[in-house]
Design a binder for these strands. Structure first.
Lengths: 330, 330
DNA sequence: AGCTTCGCAGAAATCGATTTCAGACTCAAG
DNA sequence: CTTGAGTCTGAAATCGATTTCTGCGAAGCT
């Protein structure tokens, strides 16, 4: 493997000059040519480790997310990766499984690998990004804000999404609408449930019957058991808002298994149904622009890396209702 | 940020001693204690960049895949990440979009970042891993073999999977079974189609009618247009084998849109249907153990990194039929 | 006692780049 | 002709760890 010294020797100049040529600092055209030719003929690639050590900053950013198998996050990851790569950075994807300890571990690594920045979808209530900030590293929160630190953030309008999903069911004539949301400590889950409650409070004269809000695990299994629980009630609801895409999948599975038609039993899902074969007219979906979530976060991160100072900026991206419901309550 | 010198100064020893303590080389217990205390009180973390530069080997491995939004690969990624992290390595996920140039770029980076190894799902017909091998880096191919280099590989038994999918339809009574496979240059696609052709040749007295094998893009859109094409034929088939998970999703979407019941029009899918609400009895699926694909590849990679020598090892993992079909031809 | 052997620890070299510093040289103005 | 500013360039310092080299002192052997 050729090093900068080899190139320098072949070109008959000093390593310093080689470095200057390769980094577009002023060098006489004659030597520049020599260096470029030498570099090409040795097919020289600068060693990024050495560069990072000296510069104290690598061209890598970390993307720390709780669940890489959730299409919500893969799509987000795409967005981040695209903007980052455009700006010349590689992206390291770190999967925390929602485990705060794993997350802390990855943040440690980001620090000791001198990574330029971190896009973080926090796993739990508190994430310790202070060490990163102290070292001047860029940090952007995505999907969920970071508590206790003034950090750029990009999130969905979750209350609005909860309202939209609930409204589409209400407008279609459903009157007893339950909500399967996520764990209490995840703010996105709380906000979506809040939107559901808000909207029902506005449109419905009656109080919400007890037991209509369920806190499920935000995965397929969580959606399944919550849906089963709802259907097994003595007085089941006639419609349900699924708090995220995976919960929606689980709920739909249960409906199918019980021979219930999603075109009669109402269901609206917050978040896109991945790879679904359902017609949007049967299962309305609040589309969450995850890709833009990612690109926006990536853009903010790059700006910070390139020197943007100042207080945290907070971007809220609205969801978008894909279709209205044509079916009627069963 | 504390460096090894700070620790050394505080402990009253040389940096060399600190390094020895932290790397479990023999040091007197007295000094070891001093060093550990000093390290803890400064909350010292070794700088991985410096370590990598000196050791000429980082604790990072790259996973290079063509499509991170395909659950096949996310699940595989999980597998690789789990084994790698168990062994103390971080995983960098690189998405090539099936683009050979991007892939080459990532391999370059892996080299110049001194990464310990690469798990590669090759994007195209040829991938140049020679530079990596020359530098003694570990390389393992996954899902598709690397041509022109003697590299460990872990692949699915694609011919077998194609046969299994076809057989389940045949056994259920379907007699005109088409196949939507993937692009010609992807060997997995070719092999799955081969399995389909083989099995039909064995069980069917008649020749396969022309136009029954389609080469689609291996994504949802590809499956959709291929399925539409098949259904628009004058004499459409009565069943279809979907060459991968996404093609299966696309095909199912089209069936739904046209009001065709997958329990009547036969469809078998090679690869798991992600987040599907279908009953397995209606849509048989050849389960591909993608997670083990990943863990196996990861294990081979770690072995290579830790010094395993010798010729390329080739693991073939069989698919597995989830359920037999209870429905009958429509 | 004298000599080897061994374990431990510090000084210094090393990994491969970037960057500071200082010297050599050119050119223009006084 | 001298001085000063400005341009290139190379030597050397630097980033932060690991590892080799070297020396010291204690223990073992004859």
């Amino acid at each position: 493997m050729a090093t900068i010294k080899d190139v320098a020797a072949l070109a008959g100049v000093s390593p310093a000059t080689v470095s200057r040529v390769l980094n577009n600092r002023p060098v006489s055209p004659t030597k520049a040519r020599l260096v470029l030719d030498a570099a090409r003929s040795l097919s020289y690639t600068p060693n990024r480790v050495a560069r990072t050590l000296r510069r104290q900053l690598s061209e890598v950013v970390a993307l720390v997310i709780p669940d890489i198998e959730n299409p919500f996050f893969t799509s987000l990851a795409r967005g981040v990766a695209d903007t980052a790569q455009e700006a010349g950075y590689s992206v390291v994807l770190c999967n925390t499984d929602g485990d705060v300890a794993k997350e802390a571990h990855f943040l440690d690594i980001a620090l000791s690998e001198n990574m330029a920045g971190v896009v973080l979808a926090p796993a739990g209530a508190s994430s310790d990004v202070q060490p990163l900030l102290n070292r001047g590293r860029a940090v952007v929160a995505v999907d969920r804000p970071v508590r206790g630190a003034d950090v750029d953030s990009v999130v969905i309008d979750n209350v609005g999404a909860g309202r939209a999903a609930t409204r589409v069911l209400w407008d279609a004539g459903y009157r007893d609408i339950a909500c399967i949301s996520g764990p209490d400590e995840i703010v996105t889950a709380v906000d979506r449930a809040l939107g559901w409650r808000q909207l029902l409070g506005e449109v419905s004269p009656r109080a919400i019957p007890p037991g209509r809000l369920l806190h499920a695990d935000f995965r397929v299994g969580g959606g399944r058991s919550a849906m089963q629980q709802l259907l097994d009630l003595e007085n089941p609801p006639d419609a349900v808002v699924a708090g995220n895409n995976l919960v929606g999948v689980g709920a739909l599975q249960v409906l199918h298994e019980r021979g219930l038609d999603p075109a009669r039993f109402g269901i609206a899902v917050i978040g896109d149904l991945p790879f679904s074969a359902h017609a949007p007219a049967d299962v309305p979906v609040v589309h969450l622009p995850t890709r833009s979530l990612g690109t926006t976060a990536g853009a903010l991160l790059i700006e910070r890396i390139e020197g943007h100072e100042g207080p945290g900026r907070h971007v809220v991206i609205p969801g978008e209702l894909g279709a209205t419901l044509t079916a009627a309550p069963g």
